[in-house]
């Protein structure tokens, strides 16, 4: 759906490239996670892909056509949710959505969306009176208002309580199940792990790694199994390689000891993030 080849972007007042020759594809119907520390170039990449920033170098194709060849009708099929919740503060939630709704040819019914994210009862409240979490949910609904085929979500669940975060993630998955494509940036690795079919790590403007979360975890993880067991009141552990778990010593341990935990050496996206980008995640 989107092909990015050797894309570079330099801001006017900067001598360095914010994005320096990245290549990746986003396939139709997938959730693609774009990860990186602050200032790595992920927001710049997203802004280039949603045509907010022009003048990039390299090639970007959207549905087989150069991105630059699209006019503003490009946005008929695109939904964008920014990290910073944006709305007209003196307009109610419904007035905000009504304004945006009128700008599109094709739209959806607002009511089920607002009910789903728990804002229906607050629809006549001014957006300026909303909490940060409510504003983010309102932004998320706004991104879906034109029944888009492509969603760009920047830190969509950051600042949202766990229950509503779960609902939003379910909605993102349902969007994908209906054939929608999602480009998502987040520093909440749990969300990325849960949602994304593929992820790419960017650091200092360059793409460092790309793949499915599962493949990356296998690549960066250890092919080991650690078994913790109790013996004479003490906890002991024994490490086996994946090849050893079919051998007698492993089965003997399982049969004869009081097993407390068994852990594979699979790594987490967070560990991969730190390894690949060299930066620790925000608390």
């Amino acid at each position: 759906m989107i092909k990015v080849r050797n894309m570079r972007y330099k801001y006017r007042n900067s001598s360095q490239y914010a994005v320096d020759g990245v290549d990746f594809n986003i396939n139709e119907g997938e959730i693609f996670g774009f990860l990186g520390p602050s200032g790595a170039g992920k927001s710049t990449t997203q802004k280039v892909l949603i045509k907010l920033l022009s003048g990039f170098e390299g090639e970007i194709e959207h549905r087989g056509k150069p991105l630059a060849s699209y006019d503003d009708s490009f946005y008929q099929d695109v939904g964008v949710s920014f990290e910073m919740p944006i709305s007209f503060s003196k307009l109610t939630a419904i007035e905000n959505l009504d304004f945006f709704k009128r700008l599109y040819k094709k739209t959806v019914d607002i009511e089920p969306l607002l009910k789903r994210v728990g804002l229906w009862d607050d629809r006549d409240k001014k957006a300026g009176e909303f909490s940060k979490g409510m504003k983010i949910r309102l932004n998320f609904v706004r991104a879906l208002i034109n029944d888009p085929k492509f969603l760009f979500l920047d830190e969509p669940t950051n600042g949202v309580d766990p229950a509503n975060s779960r609902i939003m993630k379910d909605m993102i998955r349902e969007f994908r199940q209906k054939g929608g494509t999602v480009f998502i940036t987040s520093h909440i690795m749990g969300d990325i792990d849960e949602l994304c079919d593929r992820v790419a790590f960017i650091s200092q403007g360059k793409l460092r790694e790309e793949g499915s979360p599962r493949d990356l975890k296998i690549k960066y993880g250890k092919r080991t199994v650690n078994v913790e067991y109790r013996e004479n009141g003490d906890v002991h552990s024994q490490l086996f390689s994946m090849d050893e778990i079919k051998t007698e010593p492993f089965f003997n341990l399982l049969r004869n000891k009081e097993i407390e935990t068994i852990h594979s050496g699979e790594t987490t996206l967070e560990e991969i993030f730190i390894k690949v980008t060299g930066v620790k995640l925000r608390a």
Binding site: I50, L52, D71, D72, S73, F74, Y75, Q76, V78, V80, F82, M84, I86, S87, F88, S89, F100, L103, Y104, K105, R142, N146
Partner: peptide, 14 residues
């Protein structure tokens, strides 16, 4: 003040 231009510029408005 409300940074609403960003949201408008990602709609079909020229």
């Amino acid at each position: 003040k409300e940074h609403t231009i960003n949201s408008i510029m990602v709609t079909p408005v020229t």
